[in-house]
Design a protein around this nucleic acid. Sequence first.
DNA 1: AGCACGCCGACT
DNA 2: GTCGGCGTGCTC
Length: 805
Amino acid sequence: MAQIAQVIVDVPTMQTNRPYTYLIPAAWQSQVQPGMRVIVPFGRGKRRVQGFVVNLTNQSTFDGDLKAIDTVVDLAPVLNTEALAMTAWLAQSTFAFQITCAQTMLPAVMRAKYEKQLRATDKTSPAVREKLFGDASSVSFETVATDSQMVSQLMRWQKAGEVDVYYQVKNQARRKTQLAVKAALTPAELATAQTTVRAGATQQLALLKALATLNGETLTQKIFSRRFNVSDATIRSGEKKGWLTRVAEEVYRDPYADSDIQATKPLTLNDEQRVAVDQIVTAIDAPATTTFLLEGVTGSGKTEVYLQAMAAALKAGKTALMLVPEISLTPQMVRRVKGRFGHAVAVLHSGLSNGEKYDEWRRIQRGEAQVVVGARSAVFAPLTNIGLIVMDEEHESSYKQDDAPRYHARQVALWRSRYHHCPVVLGSATPSLETRARAEKGVYSRLVLKDRVNQRPLPAVSIIDMKKEMQQHAESNFSAPLLVALQDRLERHEQSVLMLNRRGYSSFVLCRDCGFVLKCPNCDISLTLHMDTHTMKCHYCGHEEAIPRICPNCHSRQIRYYGTGTEKVEEELRDLLPDARIIRMDNDTTRKKGAHEKLLATFGRGDADILIGTQMIAKGLDFPNVTLVGVLNADTALGLPDFRASEWTFQLLTQVSGRAGRAEKAGHVYIQTFNPDHYAIRFAQHHDYEGFFKYEMRMRHQGGYPPYYFTVQITASDLDEAVAAKRMYQLLQWLRPRLTPSTLILGPTPKPIARVNRRYYYQMVLKYKREPNLASTLSTLLQETQVQQRQGLQISIDVEPLHFM
DNA sequence: AGCACGCCGACT
DNA sequence: GTCGGCGTGCTC
């Protein structure tokens, strides 16, 4: 029986990023297990924090007095052996704190909330009691400690024993319960009771008869009253008479409870799909940790391959994990998977409430769900005995988390595949260069789907040179050919989709007299105009202000907005095509829960002719009547200072092109661009992924970028620009001699957006092929800079960053 | 992170 | 003299 526990405490700092040793109180010794949450005293005061038990021993390696665990929060571990191992690996590979990693794997409600409280003691004088507590015995420190004078007063009272400081560690997890009805009498007694109710009491008679059918089982009151048509009032009076008892029964919050989902059958596979499924199934059965790259154009039936391979994993008694990008996790997608696997499916995505996420997580943990579908963080789903991991649209940048722990779901998936000894399927029409290059080298097995399931050819793509258009016509978002095509679709009662590439683009306010651009007072970027709220907003810090009527700089009235937002495009289109029914889909119109789905349903029913949207419309939507896709500005992302700009542009254009002509009717795509000869646009025009891959690989080779080099980004930020810059140069001096000479260091440079939220950002990028001591060097760097970090300097390390700006 | 300790300036 | 400002070190 273990007497001592090693605990990772909820104090995310470099110094506390290691286990602390605690005594286990005798009463808990047989129950505490690694992976359980505990509450422990930490520090010299009375502070208490939550922690995770990571190890049990009988001997302390700590030479000093041990404190004892205060409370054990869980009855069973919330992190199993795999999750604990994953925590350690994740912390080490992303340079994040272990506690941060552990918390990332669990639903948000399992994170503790802390409240510092003051409690009355037996020494509390009436005056203090009156001033602080009133009738209560405790009060939150924050509500009383209003200013520094009060804080010192409170400290004096604490020293005098007038008040006691206490840390309340709050568990946010709430289980949802529903009242359930249970018969309190035996069947014989119920029968007797039926004869004793007064004549005409039909409700009571119905209740007794209903209770008799329960056979001692419980049934939620809601269903009970509906099924037997007895009112809640009757049930309550039955409870008073002692016929029944009502108990609170735990229920899961089921986000899809109200949607009725049609069961679907596996579709017939074509030859290529068959080959793919067979290979994956062979790997599942072996089992082998093969990583497959499933490459197939839109409409080639990748999803069906996933579903049939997952079915094989279930058939082998194993579980399956399917990751999809957040924006592809639409109700249609969920319906498709649930239709195939029914109640075995748990869904995890950001649209769920915290309670719903918690319940889905517990269903998985208890083994009640064998299939998990979810976005990035679902890669940590507590499935055991995984037989297959699928990652759809593996090139999507949303798989990389932007804040600590800065992990890529693909890396986690590969780690779990090794742990469970199961295959991984990475699917995409436009694989990331890293993945495709690994397939080329034979590290991954490549499976190719060349044919579209419906045998439709890919749509024709026309490139429109906007430079020429601008010379011939007045300034407009719509070129003549696109407008003609839109008109034509209207006449033929076919639908069109227009995409506005928002990346690197927005509408801002500019003074036509002096050129003044309205900027955010906290960040280094222009404020974006929002017509719906009639405000100027900063997309980085959320700052909001009124739209200026006169220029703050020269007081001219010639201050107008520039650039293009979806709203402005919509407005212009309504002018040009007054008869068209238009739907706009962007962050503003889809913010409300379910709004996204509603707009798509309207469009799908044919209640609109044109759908205007941002990147979010490029993915997954599949409407047979769409025969025209227009990209209004293909090249805004090309101007970004990022070596992946071409890759993103190519992927986006290829994806959006796939939206045209998915059924019987042929589709056409119009791409408006100022760079008609750019290779990313040319290869997208010809649906030529292979061509793009070869060309881009040459570019990466020349520039020394991934996948030829590994990269690490180091960022420093401070309120004082000079401090950030100086520290960054010191880091460079410190790092250079510790790294191999062949490692390249780019920078330090100010970030393209140098100031965000009043902080100044500087970055440095390491490019290397082999750097054996990199991990230890970078951890030392973090250790050595912790004193500066206290003083307000923030340093972060991003391994294989996706965004270089 | 949050707390105690310790060292300096300005006041009951 | 002391109260309280902040820089520094430590938390099993």
